[in-house]
Every structure is written in structure tokens, then in C-alpha cells.
Design a protein around this nucleic acid. Structure first.
Lengths: 103, 103
DNA sequence: TCAATAGGCAACCATTTAGTTGCCTATTCT
DNA sequence: AGAATAGGCAACTAAATGGTTGCCTATTGA
């Protein structure tokens, strides 16, 4: 299930910070995105690969650098998944409420 | 950051399936929730502890069993976090669109 | 052309994770 | 009281994860 990979990818402080930065809309390269994360470039690169595998991010080689693009659709899928869980929950609560009222 | 733990907790197939089941609103006990997950009760119990640590779930001892309650609020926090990322992203796209239009 | 910049690849290490098994305790039902 | 049920605790294993270092390649710019 793709959503498992999505959540797993988001479940790490470094990766979540990367996504937070990318959501600003600024353009990042592997080097610039790695700065201030307290890990080496190679460490950051690994995280980036995980984000890319989860399709949260796309790596686009450009000249001697690599541009990183965030992928809004995957965030949306994650949000929709959670919303669906909540919806099922709400439906049940509503049914329960009606049941209690009719007693 | 609590949201990291939340996403990490959701980033596993067994745990996500547990949450999916719980979202139905049915009452589960550790044994009943473990059934059909293809892991032992002890394995499931460990996952459950991770969900409890992330506050996605509360374990309530009841008689010789243990009732498991899902915690809607944490799901909500996760959804809100993603929605916020998307919002930041949208704002930037909007600004970019206006910039292009004014050229 | 050649130094500097951006990055890739691979090996390696320590810690965490997912899962198991074995055995002990507490509650319930007859 | 005693069997059956629900679960806890601890030790152990294999594999995944997060991180590092060393070195190689490709693009750019003076």
C-alpha cells in the first residue's frame, strides 16, 4: 500500500523538515536542502531518496546540480486517507448517537 | 515533534491495518485486534504499544481483557499538519501565478 | 584548460525495529 | 477449586535504518 510508504517517509524528523522547507515553494538543490540539518550531504541524500521513492518529491538533474520538486498530490493522498478514517469514525459515532436517542 | 511520531506510527502496514479496523468504531481487545494480522499476539502487542505511545490509541484494562480505543484527535492533528503544508504550497503557487500574470 | 562545485556510488557501522518463543500472572466461568 | 482465557515480561534474532567516510565523475566558470 502506497500510503504506508508515504507515512513512513514522513515519519522522520529530517525528512519532515525537508518537506516543510520544500512546501515554502522555494527551489532547492540537494546541497541547499541539506544545509542546517545536522547530517552530512550523503545522509541527506539518502533521506531524499526515500522521499523520492514515496513520490513525495521528484529529483530533476539540472546542469551540475539537481533540482528538487515537491509533489503536492502525494500529500493530498495522505490527507485524504486520514480524512477517510475520520469519516468512518464519525459515521459510527453518529449511528451510536441515534441509537442512544431512540432508547 | 509529536507529529513525527504520529506519522512513524502510521508508517507500517500492520499498524495502519489496526487503525483502519479501529476506525470502524467496533470495540476491539488485544486478542481480537491481533487476529488475521499474520503475526503473533506479542508482535501485535508491540505495534499496539507504538500506537499508544503516539497517542493514536488508548489501552483500557477491563476485567481480564484490554479494551482498545482509537483517538480521533491525533488523526486530526496529522491531517491538519498535511493541510498546512499544502496551504503553504498553494499560497506560493498563487503568488507565482500573480507574478507571471503581471509580466 | 583546470580548479571548484554538485553530486554519485559503495562499504561500513551502530542502533532500532519487527518479530519470535518461553514462561509467568490475573481474571473469569463452571 | 481448577481449567480456560487474556495478557504481561524478558530474552533473543534477523533485517532495516540512519548515519558516516572515502573516493570517483560530470559540469561550470575563471
Amino acid at each position: 500500500m502506497a500510503v504506508v510508504e508515504l507515512f513512513r517517509a514522513l515519519g522522520d524528523a529530517s525528512r519532515l523538515e525537508m518537506i516543510r522547507r520544500l512546501s515554502s515553494g522555494d527551489v532547492f538543490t540537494i546541497n541547499s536542502l541539506s544545509e542546517g540539518l545536522d547530517i552530512t550531504r550523503q545522509g541527506a541524500r539518502k533521506h531524499l531518496q526515500i522521499l523520492a521513492d514515496a513520490q513525495l518529491v521528484t529529483l530533476v538533474p539540472k546542469g551540475r546540480g539537481t533540482n528538487i520538486q515537491m509533489n503536492r498530490e502525494m500529500l493530498d493522498q495522505g490527507r485524504a486517507f486520514i480524512a477517510d478514517l475520520e469519516h468512518r469514525w464519525d459515521i459510527r459515532l453518529e449511528a451510536l448517537r441515534r441509537f442512544v436517542d431512540n432508547e
